[in-house]
Design a protein around this nucleic acid. Sequence first.
DNA 1: ATGCTTGCAAACGGTTTGCACGTGT
DNA 2: ACACGTGCAAACCGTTTGCAAGCAT
Lengths: 140, 140
Amino acid sequence: MTDQTTQDLKGAGLKVTLPRMRVLEVLSKVDDNDRHMSAEDVYRYLMTAGDDISLATIYRVLTQFEAAGLVIKHHFDGGTARYELDTGDNHNHIVCMKTGRVEEFTDKEIEAKIQTIARELGYELTDYKLTLYGVSQEAL
Amino acid sequence: MTDQTTQDLKGAGLKVTLPRMRVLEVLSKVDDNDRHMSAEDVYRYLMTAGDDISLATIYRVLTQFEAAGLVIKHHFDGGTARYELDTGDNHNHIVCMKTGRVEEFTDKEIEAKIQTIARELGYELTDYKLTLYGVSQEAL
DNA sequence: ATGCTTGCAAACGGTTTGCACGTGT
DNA sequence: ACACGTGCAAACCGTTTGCAAGCAT
């Protein structure tokens, strides 16, 4: 009875409830094209899937997940916030201006350089965000 | 009669009006600690300075400036948007989590790497944002 | 049993907009 | 003169919150 989702919730110190499980499941299993969902996205997805969970709850759950470190919140363009599972690997994003699609990438060199820069400027680095904006060749 | 501010506005194809000049002046001359102001910041600054320009106009002017490429808009944390003059040099930011203060830096190496990555992923890069979050030693 | 969770609907805060008036060219 | 810019107040939209009812432990 202790599947991965349940464990994740317990590990985060959160009571295991249906909304929390469903939201976590959605974020876990959407394929790469649909990652980085907004609260609305999650809401609509769940409605379509037959669940009946209020938008307010989605927001509350996502906020808790963020605080618990299960999820990362992004504000790519400025409109609505998007969420993705925190997989541990600190990755960056590239957003297609035409389709809105988000891809991920990592780069050791940049990562190292960022550490160095923070140190040189006299900061203790807690986090960073690198996002590229462009037009994917595929979108033409 | 054609000072820098006026030229900038004309160059951007914008009619020279008092609100536009004042907003541009504020953004031009605030010292480093006060750069990256929110619309409210600009509004309060101008009120204090004796101007009487509505907040709605500040928003409209800032939006036009952004469209005209005079100004860059940031959404650092997610709360309110902040604006800064576009000085041409594509710089990055480091935000102190304790004081909210924003510093700038540039790095040729990272810049080059970013170009490479975009190309490799099949994107035509239009822009990018790199923001570090940390605690400044000075804030302790 | 009891304290955390949820749904609902109302509040919120930053930002945008319709309208009638004012202003730059 | 005429089109564009502005102030005001109301609308907007994503997100948050107070409250009463519902669950997990």
